[in-house]
């Protein structure tokens, strides 16, 4: 399928992550969201996306990082429905050669599929399928 992929880079509390662009539908600013009582921990709430009700997920429990302020949401399409991932800010789209993607260090999180270097900084590419499967199963 070609030697390169496009990734959407974002940060959660200044730590850089990325998603494969194939899953990404759009990026929106989080204006407000409604809390859902009795919902699982990773669901921040729900919000209105042009008339559709979309759940807002934060990855702190999954990635073992502290919760923080979220300003933007990355909307992914999963199983015919939309899901919003809450992030601090979206940096942009990066074109990356497959050969530049390194294996993550053995002790790292199971949801990171690879690591790539960019401007002296490391970006952890996240495995969206694994994350969404984990979320919907709990």
């Amino acid at each position: 399928m070609g030697a390169e992929i496009h990734i959407l880079v974002f940060d959660i509390d200044d730590v850089l992550f990325a998603f494969n662009l194939n899953y990404v539908r759009e990026v929106v600013r989080i204006k407000e969201y409604t809390r859902v009582p009795n919902a699982p921990e990773h669901i921040l709430g729900v919000f209105n996306l042009r008339g559709q009700i979309v759940p807002l997920i934060h990855l702190s429990s999954i990635l073992n990082i502290p919760s923080t302020r979220y300003n933007e949401a990355i909307i992914l399409s999963y199983d015919d429905e939309l899901v919003g991932i809450a992030v601090s800010s979206v940096k942009g789209v990066l074109r990356v050669l497959k050969t530049d993607i390194r294996q993550p260090p053995t002790k790292s999180n199971e949801f990171i599929s690879g690591v790539v270097k960019w401007n002296e900084r490391l970006i952890s590419i996240l495995n969206i399928e694994k994350i969404l499967n984990k979320i919907s199963s709990s």
């Binding site: 859902v36 009795n38 729900v46 559709q52 009700i53 759940p55 919907s136």
Partner: peptide, 14 residues
């Protein structure tokens, strides 16, 4: 009434 989607279905009380 709008559907909540699979991720939010089955939540107690909603």
């Amino acid at each position: 009434v709008k559907p909540l989607g699979k991720m939010l279905s089955g939540i107690k009380g909603i």
